[in-house]
Design a protein around this nucleic acid. Structure first.
Lengths: 227, 227
DNA sequence: TATCTGTCGATACACTGTATCAGCGCTGAC
DNA sequence: GTCAGCGCTGATACAGTGTATCGACAGATA
């Protein structure tokens, strides 16, 4: 068959240059906008103008992509401060604020081993700033703060979402879940709970986070003082 | 078409009686055996000898099934003890042991609002046992312990899984991830981290959990003492 | 006995992560 | 300058997902 008869090959779009960084950035964009469920390899690839399979040159599995996303968020967290207490507080607030910027972060945090360079760098910054405290205290102290923050952030984001589904505001939320709780408490099966909800303090998210964190830090401080 | 020509309807297997309890039980069985990913509506239904669509008479969505599973686990947790500290410790250990029995629990905990009856009952038991401490302290104290436990349990289960992938034992684990960390530390970018891994204390899971929990409880105790 | 109602599950749809593989462009050897 | 080989790309495919739709049957009601 002569050349003239043969059709030209279809215009191959010159492949967009890719990199892990671009991929992760695109994935984070999707997750920020529409939640973790919106992150599919097809969508990430499409956002970059590439075919889905191309990503597998950069990552072996979707889980790896999620790990990279988490590490990328840790890059935004640079704990610093004067003295162990300030450093741990900075770590805690840093993670919390990062989760505010990237709510999906709360879904992933603590769920997979984090050994990425930026996560390690955050850990390094914490340890470097912990001052002269003995390792026997530093290690469990950092672990405890970490654990607390993970749990606290998860709960905070969960609550934030629950409020959002019913119209963006706390009163609306109580209107949505309130009746159910009302009815449940009316059964009299949970008197202590009911009285707490009725008479207990209503702290906002900042206060709740801080007061719990203070418990942890105070506990650490007491241990340090006793050593 | 005459009756004789029409084939008999296929033998309908008499439908298995179903209930939310059975469904949740089956789902938990699957999750215990093969992890959360093994829980699909099709598999749960199959395990019960039913069609997938039948489940939608009992739950509206897969998320609801997961919520029910979490609530069912909370039914195994009955915090008790003498005095606020014992109660909170009981709560913490209860959640931890439940997560040991149901590792998938660690994946879900803290991730959705928990208003199920058994979760509320656990909360009720805690509050009822907290004694005379003022609500201004009780509320944040329970919240703090909860947050800590969520994070600590997640980390513990995550670690446990990481160890398991490389042959069930801690030395094997260090063999798998060790080289990577070795090389990473060899860069000199993480001196403080490296020295902690090298010279720091190596606590087992029980000790780690307890020491962090003690920080929280000590912090609470100090606050109570000061009030 | 006839009609209504509610439930069951077959089928279908859109979508997922990923294995496979044909074909293309580029690179290096002769 | 030619050609073999290699690596990458994206089309296709597969098994599986959650869930909407709906025909058909069973039991309850009139």
């Amino acid at each position: 068959m002569l050349v003239w008869e043969r059709p030209e090959p279809p215009d191959r779009p010159t492949p967009v240059p890719l990199s892990r960084e671009r991929i992760v950035h695109a994935a984070i964009g999707l997750a920020d906008a529409d939640g973790l469920d919106a992150v599919s390899l097809r969508k990430v690839a499409a956002a970059l103008g590439a075919g889905p399979m191309r990503l597998y040159g950069y990552i072996a599995t979707k889980e790896e992509l999620l790990d990279l996303m988490v590490d990328a968020v840790y890059a935004e967290i640079r704990p610093a401060g004067d003295g162990w207490r300030a450093v741990l507080l900075s770590l805690a607030e840093g993670i919390r604020l990062a989760a505010h910027r990237h709510e999906w972060f709360a879904d992933l945090i603590g769920g997979r081993p984090q050994l990425g360079p930026d996560t390690l760098a955050a850990g390094e910054a914490v340890l470097a700033g912990m001052g002269g405290a003995g390792l026997d205290i530093v290690v469990p102290a950092v672990a405890a703060v970490n654990a607390y923050v993970i749990g606290a952030v998860r709960r905070e984001i969960t609550e934030r979402r629950a409020e959002r589904v019913s119209g963006m505001d706390k009163e609306q939320w109580q209107l949505a879940f309130g009746p159910y709780l009302e009815r449940t408490f009316a059964t009299g099966r949970f008197p202590a709970l009911a009285s707490v909800v009725r008479d207990g303090p209503h702290l906002d998210a900042d206060q709740t986070f801080r007061s719990g964190l203070d418990f942890v830090l105070d506990g650490i401080e007491a241990r340090i003082a006793a050593s």
